[in-house]
Design a protein around this nucleic acid. Structure first.
Lengths: 140, 140
DNA sequence: TATTGTTATACTCTATAACTATA
DNA sequence: TATAGTTATAGAGTATAACAATA
């Protein structure tokens, strides 16, 4: 007797729904800064581990390499990142935050944190930690 | 001392990443049937609570009303749903699964369930249940 | 030969506004 | 006046293929 999936218990549906909501609300919060949620994740990666190649950003963030080009273009034109030469490989460009980029990221992080608190409002701190640790194991 | 968000702990990023992966893998699994993940959720809603209006589908699934029109069009042309008249309101169309639609949904549900099992493979049954219940509280 | 970054392109998804018919 | 469904449209996101430079 096969059980049919239901909206209330389908993990894929709930993940897509919650993920879409997270993106939408973050985009709204970042609107004044001219950034979108994906720019924000690039800044986050660069702030955390400076000097990543675009290839590394692509796999780390799950964004297609061709899309990374466009995102880094945007951030470079806004003066928030530089594309530095790789010491040993002339094909590779290392994406590095500028001083202006660090400031912009800190400001964006304020909005991001508020948005996340709002999203997770129904959960207590232990539940938030549980959710994050479960997600980390399936997000890949 | 403000803590900056990190890729490892940012719930929005992890949700978006996992949600995107769920959609992508479901779309691949459904490809032979000619359905996309959003068609699947419409079928799921109609199977679970038959006779929903398109407006109700829109809020239940978090899909814009204009997009619901296109999805129901697709499903209707494929013979999987009907648009029935609402007894008391001639503006409203009730979306109902046909016999063919029920069969198609059961088959799609097989693929959906396999995809979900694959996605949740790193989690044991209790962890899956926890994740689903936490997601349900923030998915809205 | 393989890989990095890039360009071009097509398709899907999301979002908004405007219209119609009904309420 | 407000709501359900519809159409049109624009913008953002996703995905693929092909190319130049370099490994």
């Amino acid at each position: 007797m096969p059980e049919l999936p239901s909206l209330d218990t389908d993990a894929g549906f709930l993940l897509a729904r919650a993920g879409g909501r997270a993106i939408r609300e973050l985009n709204r919060a970042l609107e004044p800064s001219g950034l979108r949620s994906r720019h924000y994740t690039v800044l986050m990666a660069a702030a955390e581990r400076g000097g990543l190649s675009q290839r590394e950003l692509s796999t780390l963030l799950g964004i297609d390499p061709s899309a990374v080009v466009a995102l880094v273009d945007d951030l470079e034109h806004a003066g928030l990142v530089r594309r530095d030469a790789h010491p040993g490989d002339r094909r590779t460009r290392l994406v590095v935050l500028t001083g202006k980029g660090k400031t912009a990221f800190r400001r964006a992080a304020d909005h991001g944190t508020k948005t996340e608190n709002n999203l997770l409002a129904p959960l207590d701190p232990a539940e938030r930690a549980t959710l994050i640790s479960l997600l980390r194991r399936i997000a890949r």
